[in-house]
Design a protein around this nucleic acid. Structure first.
Lengths: 124, 124
DNA sequence: CGCTTGACCTTGAGCAACTCCAGCTTGTTA
DNA sequence: TAACAAGCTGGAGTTGCTCAAGGTCAAGCG
């Protein structure tokens, strides 16, 4: 799978994928003989995870730290479990905040839209 | 009400309020004799609206356009209703996307966290 | 009455996280 | 063999804040 397919499959733009690679958020993609990046199913799955975390506001620095822990060898796979849990649990809390913001905005929009609709109806 | 009180009441940082004023997203705040900005209840309510829209990802350019329409005179208050509705309805759609992203991430986190918890339990 | 303090002011630089662009390489297709 | 499509790199540009330096001014204290 090339980068444009990986982009479509993950929801990240091509530029963003290259940027993430350079930023150490994914293991450097292997290349074909032309020098093009090749993505397998695992790589794409990881891109999707990155997209989820970033879309919901996890800072790059945290995502990078999580990435390093996930892609480290077996030794780190053990020793880093606690830290990974910490990062993910902190993000769960952030999601709750986001949900509140979303709900507040939903309410605001519903209200304002009904006001403007009433104004339009009266004008006409 | 001074800027630090307005900041606490709206959830925007002091710097952000000044930045929004300069960016034309709020009517230039009146000043007291020292040159300090003064915010009344309406101004703070508007800051809260800005906070809701931005926290949920409306681009500055759209917020600014909405702000201009809202704070224009009576003539524009009539003629701009349709455009305001358009802006807000578009944002409602964006909220639905955000909700989906949030839910997807929630699921992912719940799954990953349970996996890591199982690993921790086994280690110990 | 002078001095310090604290909260605000402005201007401008810095930063995060992309996004876009110019110019180059390479397999394929006509 | 020339053109094309898709990728590559390095670097500049954009958005939306955030921070820092240096300045003003009313109020309180000695």
């Amino acid at each position: 799978m090339n980068i444009s397919e990986a982009s479509k499959a993950s929801g990240l733009s091509i530029d963003t994928i290259r940027f993430y690679e350079k930023a150490g958020m994914l293991p450097a993609a292997p290349r074909d003989r032309r020098g093009w990046r090749v993505f397998n199913a695992d790589a794409v799955e990881w891109l999707r995870n990155l997209e989820r975390l970033r879309a919901t506001g996890m800072p790059l620095a945290n995502v990078r730290r999580f990435a390093v822990l996930v892609h480290a060898g077996d030794a780190a796979a053990v020793s880093g479990t606690a830290e990974r849990l910490t990062i993910l649990r902190r993000h769960q809390l952030r999601l709750a905040d986001r949900q509140n913001e979303l709900d507040a905005c939903k309410t605001y929009l519903a209200h304002k839209i009904s006001v403007y609709e009433a104004m339009e109806a009266k004008e006409q």
